[in-house]
Design a protein around this nucleic acid. Sequence first.
DNA 1: ATGGCAGTATTTTACTGA
Length: 266
Amino acid sequence: MGDAAQMQIATWNVNSVKSRLDLLLRWLDEARPDLVCLQEIKCLDEAFPTAAIEDAGYSVAVHGQKTYNGVALLSRFPLEDVTRGLPGDESDEQARYIEAVVSTPGGAVRVGGVYLPNGNPVDSPKYGYKLGFMERLRAHAAERLLLEEPFVLAGDFNVIPEARDARRPEAWVGDALYLPDTHAAWRRLLALGLTDALRASDDEGGVYTFWDYQAGAWQKDNGIRIDHLLLSPQAADRLLGVRIDRHVRSWERPSDHVPVVAELAV
DNA sequence: ATGGCAGTATTTTACTGA
């Protein structure tokens, strides 16, 4: 840890870890996060750049998939009890969830890294898959909350929670990220007792984590907030603050998402 | 509003993403 009194937990959809390795290493060196949940690594476990990331000081756990999806955990502390895949559907072959317990000097923190389905187009089976995944995530989070331990569910949720989370909310009406059923599933998740870490400390709009590559979205700040960290009560009690590393979006050949970092007292 | 961008696969475009 950079500071003995706190722990930084981050989530970042890197849009291919192989294409983004230089930026990932640059950001790890700059931000010095203690734990990182990566999404859309887009490679099999054996193709993950484990050695380069271990050289940067991190332990690695990967749940990979070729071409699409894929999630990973990077940690400065030992990763224990790693589980891969979201329970509730044995036929689901998409690599979208990885969980582990991180042992820190201040105690254990359980972390779930999630890449929730996009769900578009909404008249296709993809939207049903998204809603089914959200219900499975709710059921799994409910189980984890019974443990009454610090638990952080972090990742790309592909959910714009409210109008203030989009620069142009009117453009998202009817989209899988913003449909009423999506919002209802999001609220059911939070109603378990999870805290949206960013909203615990910032009520303002204009706080985004994703800007499309197209149509000059970054230059126009036409963004949305879809990358989130949800905290169990025991984790929320330790929340010191959240930041979004927006500047990473202006680096050369960036991901369309930027890192979101929560600081917890440990 | 769309898909103008970007990544991957096997490629000479198709698909996926949000």
